[in-house]
């Protein structure tokens, strides 16, 4: 194995050991996965969304399995930023990989407030979650309107010394426009895609399978959708992209890099295998060596 084969330049001043990250909301803060083995080899840990105030989340049932995927409606359950910083962030930092902290809110003020509060918590970057489909009635106010996106990203930019990625939604025909708005307002990178709106129906009981009605679809079923939006946005905006959606193998990683992602996130696959991300890193190294490939060859973004 060649040392540094997987090294990934994500942003100016931010180079990761490899391009395989955990996806927000699918690995909590890394502590639970670390009970199964060493998670140091992950390129970075992306934490579950934290909001200014605690959120209880949505009522159960919150999960429904679908063909090659699953629906969730968690609703950004989290202990709020103060408790998160005091109790959970120190444990995440101890695990080894750089931490990218995911922040969320329901208003311009909330995004600004939480961003300001986490500047000195030890994260190498932030991920700003504009695209959770399970809050605010699934309206996605900041991820479906270029103007609203530009405004919130501008507010985050003004208070953030940390670089940040903006996590976008596939649930709009304006994905490229929203991405351009995020870029022009000062985002350092983009994360694509959050989950797709979806619904399960229990027809015998005349009701939806999730308590909230609809939820977000993830898993292998959405990989082609994610690849589509990564490529679409790659062509529209010259910012690094974190690709996410149905990634479970090293082959999947290579597909996303060729589509235009600089790195990827592993989400639902971590539910099947607590060390999936680490296993993908190992597989990816073997695959690139076997094929005489490199991260730089696959990644189309010129630095």
């Amino acid at each position: 194995m060649r040392a540094g084969l997987l090294r990934t330049s994500l942003l100016p001043g931010l180079t990761l050991a490899n391009p395989v990250l955990s996806a927000s909301g699918c690995y909590n803060h890394g502590v639970e996965g670390a009970r199964f083995g060493d998670v140091k080899r992950l390129g970075a840990l992306v934490t579950k969304t934290v909001t200014p105030r605690p959120r209880a989340g949505n009522p159960p049932p919150r999960l429904w399995e679908t063909s090659a995927g699953m629906l969730n409606s968690i609703g950004l359950e989290n202990p709020g930023v103060e408790r998160f910083l005091a109790e959970e962030m120190p444990r995440a930092l101890e695990l080894g990989p750089p931490v990218i902290l995911n922040v969320g809110g329901e208003s311009l003020e909330e995004f600004e407030q939480v961003t300001e509060r986490v500047q000195d918590c030890g994260a190498v970057a932030l991920e700003v979650n504009l695209s959770c489909p399970n809050v605010q009635g699934g309206q996605l106010p900041f991820a479906t309107s270029p103007a609203a996106c530009e405004e919130v990203v501008g507010r985050v930019r003004r208070v953030s010394r940390l670089p940040f990625f903006v996590k976008l939604s596939p649930n709009t025909h304006l994905v490229a426009d929203v991405a351009r708005a995020a870029a022009s307002a000062g985002a350092d990178g983009l994360t694509l895609i959050n989950t797709l709106h979806g619904r399960g129906i229990d027809w015998r009981r005349r009701r939806p399978c999730l308590a909230e009605g609809s939820g977000g679809l993830s898993g292998p079923a959405i990989k082609p959708v994610a690849l589509h939006f990564v490529a679409l946005v790659r062509a529209a905006v010259r910012l690094p992209i974190l690709g996410v959606g149905g990634i479970a193998t090293a082959e999947d990683v290579c597909e996303f890099l060729v589509a235009g992602a600089s790195a990827v996130q592993v989400g639902t696959a971590h539910f099947l295998d607590p060390l999936c991300g680490v296993h993908i890193v190992e597989e990816l190294e073997e695959l690139l060596v076997a094929e005489g490939e490199s991260i730089d060859n696959l990644s189309s973004l010129e630095q």
Binding site: C26, P60, M70, I74, F271, P274
Partner: peptide
């Protein structure tokens, strides 16, 4: 017993009141 995705605490899906 509830619906579970992960079983080890990361998906936050198996909530009980």
């Amino acid at each position: 017993e509830t619906y579970m995705a992960c079983g080890y605490g990361v998906c936050n899906g198996c909530s009980v009141a």
